[in-house]
C-alpha cells in the first residue's frame, strides 16, 4: 500500500488547475497539501480518490486502499449516530465492534442514540471522521478535516491520525490548520499552477478555443 502520484495534472470546469504534481506516500507518512483557496486541493483529492479522471499523469494505488472524506460528511440527519456509523461499517464489511470502537475514539459514544441532525457542527464532523476508522483502509484522503472542530477536537483528531500513521497508515490532508503532526510533510501547491491558463486537451474549450484564428 503506497500511494504514488507521478506528473499528475488535474482540471476543474474544463481548465487545468494543477500540473506536474509528483509525490510518494509510504506507510506511516502524512502529507499536508497547502495553498490558497481555489488552488485545486479538493480537485486533486477527488482525482486521486477516483471520482474524476486525471488530465494526465499517473496515480498508482489500489483503489481499495483509499478512503476519501469530503467537505460534506455524508450523514443522514434522520438516523441516529449509531445507525450512521453502522451503515458505513457494513458497507466496508468491518462489523459492529469496529463501529463502536470508532465512536469511542472520537468521543461520540455518549451521543450514539441521538439523531445525527441534532448534533452540533463539530460533532457531525467528528462523526464524519469516525467513518474513516470503519473503512479499514490505510490511505486517508482528507479534505479540510478540521473544519468546525474546536481546539480539543482538533487535538483529538490529531491523536487519531497519529495512531493511524503508527499502525502503518498514511494520510493526504488538505488543511489550513496546523495539526501538530511532526511526522507530516508539507506540499505547497502554488508552484504547480500552470504557467499559462489552458483548457483541458480534448475538452470542449480546447476543441473550439484553439481555432480562434481560423476563418469562418
Amino acid at each position: 500500500m503506497e500511494l504514488r502520484v507521478e506528473n499528475l495534472a488535474v482540471a476543474r470546469g474544463g481548465l487545468v488547475v494543477l500540473e506536474g504534481i509528483s509525490f510518494t506516500l509510504c506507510p506511516g507518512q502524512a502529507l499536508v497539501l497547502r495553498g490558497p483557496n481555489g488552488i485545486g486541493k479538493t480537485t486533486l483529492l477527488r482525482t486521486i480518490a477516483g471520482l474524476q479522471p486525471p488530465v494526465s499523469g499517473a496515480i498508482s494505488a489500489a483503489t481499495d486502499d483509499l478512503a476519501y472524506a469530503s467537505h460534506a460528511d455524508g450523514l443522514k440527519s434522520a438516523l441516529t449516530v449509531d445507525a450512521n456509523i453502522s451503515f458505513w461499517a457494513s458497507v466496508y464489511g468491518s462489523g459492529q465492534t469496529a463501529a463502536a470502537a470508532a465512536l469511542d475514539r472520537l468521543e461520540l459514544t455518549a451521543l450514539r442514540h441521538r439523531a445525527a441532525g441534532q448534533l452540533s457542527a463539530g460533532q457531525k464532523r467528528r462523526l464524519g471522521l469516525a467513518r474513516l476508522l470503519v473503512t479499514g483502509r490505510p490511505v486517508w484522503l482528507l479534505d479540510e478535516p478540521t473544519v468546525s472542530l474546536d481546539q480539543a477536537a482538533v487535538a483529538l483528531f490529531a491523536g487519531v491520525l497519529r495512531a493511524h500513521l503508527k499502525e502503518g497508515g498514511a494520510a493526504l490532508i488538505a488543511t489550513h490548520i496546523d495539526l501538530g503532526l511532526e511526522e507530516a510533510g508539507g506540499l505547497d501547491l502554488t508552484p504547480f499552477r500552470p504557467k499559462h491558463q489552458r483548457a483541458v486537451a480534448g475538452g470542449f474549450d480546447d476543441a473550439f478555443g484553439e481555432i480562434i484564428g481560423a476563418p469562418g
Binding site: A49, G50, L51, A67, A72, D73, V91
Partner: peptide, 16 residues
C-alpha cells in the same frame, strides 16, 4: 438527497 449531503461521493468511492 444523497448528492446533497455528500454520501453519493462516499458511496461512489466505497467498495460497492
Amino acid at each position: 438527497l444523497d448528492h446533497e449531503d455528500g454520501s453519493l461521493d462516499l458511496l461512489a468511492t466505497a467498495p460497492l
